[in-house]
Design a binder for these strands. Structure first.
Lengths: 342, 342
DNA sequence: AAGTCACGGGCAAACCTTTTCCTGAAGACG
DNA sequence: CGTCTTCAGGAAAAGGTTTGCCCGTGACTT
């Protein structure tokens, strides 16, 4: 009967430890020890306390616990740019890993606005969060949080901090590009075009660089002799596919910077009557299911394991919370997902 | 110099109200009143306290405040099913509205698992959240949270509660269907097919019902005489378009249950050489930009104003927190977004 | 000049749990 | 039988803020 409360408890309506103690016939301190395993006491006494807890439906007041311990059992999750396709899996991974440690996630969306970021940072500091995870949609490095209380550990996920003494968890663009190229070469392709996003995005540059390097290691060159930088859109994929086929009609594979581009490429190929994967293979990047699965044919693609990035960021943060922070950049490997486009 | 701290404050490293009081030469209680506007005191005294606050960089300890007030200035946001396309905007709208009230959002993802839901609910209760918003991806009603402490107000967003004495905020499927049909009829279409998702989804049923009613009111019938229920996928859109054109070649408009279906329909039309919107108009539902904008041509579609749903849910929750809850179902109107497909 | 009043500000309780230190009693050992 | 140790459990401080109540002082009233 959790509704009943010991005499004298009414104010909050919830049973306090004092009520438990009274019911068990012990002092408050003893009741606390009985619950937390500390102190020495007769097993039967402990049991009496536990029974009282059950009878009253007692749950400790976390505000009081936090006040005493200085910990809030809460971490802030700041997403730099909305809560989109990239930050969501990171967020879920983090929530999952933290939830196991009884820690909850406080969500802060800055919408890419520095003012808002400051505001949230203050809020989180005031709440005495145990730590903060910062994540963004881009993989480009970002400046560290400004004015952060040095006692609050921070982990940057996906977008690393520009400060190397911070802790960051990032995706392995190099490995991703390698997986894609190895796959294409292993399946007999030799004339590979690379179509990707804007050159000012690090992700585009890195993937392109490593794709080229991998080709070069096999004694090959990109189909058109260069990388096609553009936008992260289907429309660009379609345009670029046209351009590539005009310049290098013998192209037998496209490695694309993301799944949208890949889908655009696949659409153009299909509309031109070129068989995928019969004549030309297409490999995307992101494993964004709504794109990859809806594509005709479904896309072979690189999965960045974003959930894993979130999980690892959370684990690093947990480490930093109760031991010393281990600065540095942690790289999470990608995964090749083979579907029918290659 | 926020780093300096009054003598005796070291334990936490952060300035306490006691330090402020000491520096200002007043008692702790007076300092508190000076900050919170309460109590009567000489303006210069208040100013001295404010100066001390500034000098020490004092920020009140929220754990202590919460302990005292019983409020956590936090609400839980439970998403029933991942954090997807539907819950994200709701979440952002809620965060926005709550942030204005100094309230933060605690994120709980149940992954559709009842055990997890219980676990999170307990966690939120233990944290003494001020309220809870429950949201899901489907618009079908869901059973209310079980075992919820009646003192914690709850608002259901998107997925209403099956209990009419709860507070729910939902989308206006009827209005959405009406907007779409009015638009099509107003632009001269007379033979409209409706292709939508599975019949066991309320959203599909409702939109279909109201679309038919609206046609009937204009003395019309669906193009094929029936509604085409299927899946929420592009593939289904493509198949359904074929089927519709076979049965009713004179069809001059498609109203689709979501943007994916609409995109599938548009693809089929284009591949058959049927002009959109010249020969046939296509209207989608959801205004999911990655679909609606990538479609050729970009889709006219219905926007459910999900962010607004989140915002209103948050406002209702704020109401319920400091006054009496106002049970009932609140309906948020949709918005027609006209693009080039109609 | 004595009584009132208002104003400024202090005191202390309350919010609830954890943890350290301490005490009283009982058992063990010489 | 006395002293030492051990053990069970209690008392109280600490963590920081808010707020109701109270008191002293100076001004004002009659």
């Amino acid at each position: 009967m959790p509704v009943t409360s010991a005499p004298g408890s009414p104010p909050t309506g919830r049973a306090r430890l004092a009520d438990v103690a009274a019911l068990a016939g012990v002092s408050v301190g003893t009741a606390s020890k009985a619950l937390n395993g500390g102190g020495r006491m007769r097993p039967e006494t402990r049991q009496r306390v536990l029974d009282a807890v059950a009878e009253l439906g007692f749950r400790p007041n976390q505000h009081a616990q936090s006040l005493h311990s200085g910990r809030s059992w809460t971490v802030g999750l700041m997403t730099t740019d909305g809560i989109g396709r990239f930050s969501t899996p990171v967020l879920l991974g983090a929530e999952d890993a933290l939830g196991a440690g009884k820690i909850s996630v406080l969500l802060c969306d800055t919408r890419g606005d520095a003012i808002r970021e400051q505001h949230h940072l203050r809020n989180l500091t005031d709440r005495r969060v145990d730590g903060i995870i910062v994540t963004g949609r881009r993989t480009d490095p970002r400046p560290p949080l400004v004015g952060i209380d040095p006692r609050i550990p921070v982990v940057y996920a996906l977008s690393p901090s520009t400060d190397p003494t911070d802790t960051s968890v990032v995706t392995d663009d190099r490995g991703g590009a390698r997986l894609a190229m190895e796959h294409l070469l292993a399946t007999g392709r030799t004339t590979v075009a690379h179509v990707t996003g804007p050159e000012h995005h690090q992700a585009a540059r890195e993937r392109a660089r490593h794709a080229r390097e991998h080709l070069a290691a096999a004694g090959l060159e990109p189909a058109t002799g260069r990388v096609h930088f553009g936008e992260w859109s289907e429309a660009w994929g379609r345009r670029a596919a046209d351009a590539v086929l005009r310049t290098a009609p013998l192209t037998d594979a496209f490695f694309c910077g993301n799944d949208q581009i890949a889908r655009g490429v696949a659409d153009t190929l299909r509309e031109r009557g070129i068989g995928v994967p019969g004549d030309v293979a297409v490999v995307g990047y992101d494993n964004w299911d709504t794109m990859a699965l809806a594509c005709r044919p479904p896309l072979t693609t690189i999965d960045m394991n974003l959930t894993e990035i979130g999980r690892i960021a959370a684990l690093r943060l947990l480490e930093a919370i109760d031991t010393e922070p281990a600065p540095g950049v942690y790289t999470v490997p990608c995964r090749l997902v083979v579907r029918e486009s290659s």
